[in-house]
């Protein structure tokens, strides 16, 4: 049996890990939510994530300004999103195929231009020390929270509010749910979708900057372990609701933190198995939500996988 102190350490480590690991999930999931709300799927956000990570790291290394790196990652994500949005707007183009192609493309150019940055150290985005009040060093470390996490929370709440209370929000939902109605109201669905894909791509780029500038906090080719892909599953689990995206991202984050947390108390047996927790969770969630009528009901009606 695990002693009480060890359990506490594991839980604290998982809390810290959940917040840390969830940030890229959160950004990608919010980006994907915007895109899917418009009626299109961008499976290529993994590419945006990796390219964003590389661009952020390179810019931070050259300028010494990590926040400029974040802005650069956002811009890189926008460009990839624009590419996806534009290509998918051509007639008879399948958004899923384009997404996979652009994922390879984004990862490819990130690796190509990223080679020189694998060795050097770039300035990182420092976390906010919110645990100073505590004497427990583990808790202090867990509450070392990156400002990007809070930025993600703000975006989630703002998006949730905007979807219900602003005209652009309603137009986005309308386009995603019923293209004929949007057309009948003089809305150009193609434009709405391109904008939504561009913005979604940008957010995924920011998620990438967190990977290279905060946690793990370096640039290499194994940096992302499929967070960009899992975030797509997460959006379905969150039923296209930005607030639920936050909880879902935290859940995935906690699952991702399980392996390292157990290792920190000396349980290394089954380390790889516990590290696989997020993937198992993804599989489980996909099976469960595919069977759920509620999820089917909440899905935007114009999504190619729903139609």
């Amino acid at each position: 049996m695990m002693p009480e102190a060890a359990l506490q350490t594991v839980l604290i480590a998982m809390l810290g890990g959940a917040i840390r690991v969830s940030t890229p999930y959160l950004f990608v999931a919010l980006g994907e939510t915007i895109t899917e709300k418009s009626g299109r799927i961008n499976l290529g956000l993994e590419g945006n994530l990796v390219l964003g990570a590389m661009v952020a790291y390179a810019l931070s290394f050259h300028t010494g300004l990590p926040w400029l790196g974040v802005a650069g990652a956002f811009a890189a994500g926008l460009v990839l999103g624009l590419l996806h949005g534009t290509i998918c707007s051509l007639p008879k183009v399948n958004d899923i195929a384009v997404g996979i192609a652009l994922m390879s493309f984004g990862i490819g150019i990130a690796f190509f231009f990223g080679k020189p940055y694998i060795q050097p150290q770039a300035p990182r985005l420092e976390g906010l020390a919110l645990g100073e009040w505590s004497s427990n060093p583990a808790l202090r470390q867990a509450l070392q929270i990156n400002p990007l996490f809070f930025l993600g929370l703000v975006i989630a709440v703002a998006l949730w509010w905007a979807l219900a209370n602003t005209r652009p929000g309603l137009i986005l939902r309308m386009t995603g749910d019923s293209e004929p109605s949007a057309r009948a109201m003089g809305v150009n669905p193609v434009r709405v979708r391109i904008l939504a894909t561009v913005l979604g791509g940008g957010l995924a780029g920011i998620g990438g900057s967190f990977l290279s500038l905060s946690y793990p906090g370096s640039w290499n080719e194994g940096l992302s372990s499929g967070q960009g892909l899992m975030a797509v599953a997460l959006v379905i689990f969150a039923r296209w609701n930005p607030l639920r995206c936050v909880w879902a991202a935290l859940l995935f984050g906690a699952a991702g933190a399980l392996g390292p947390a157990l290792q920190s108390v000396g349980i290394s047996q089954g380390y790889y198995f516990f590290n696989a927790a997020p993937y198992i969770l993804t599989l489980f969630i996909m099976v469960a939500s595919a069977r759920s009528g509620v999820a089917a009901h909440a899905a935007p009606g114009e999504l190619s996988i729903v139609k």
């Binding site: 005209r167 309603l170 309308m174 009606g301």
Partner: peptide
């Protein structure tokens, strides 16, 4: 025009459907 195939947006409420149909420019409702 009242179409034979509905042009209402299923996921929006009745009120949201009416307000969005009005096509004016104020961004916040």
């Amino acid at each position: 025009m009242v179409y034979q195939h509905f042009t209402l947006v299923p996921c929006l409420s009745v009120a949201e459907n009416l307000v969005i149909a009005r096509g004016d420019k104020a961004p916040v409702i």
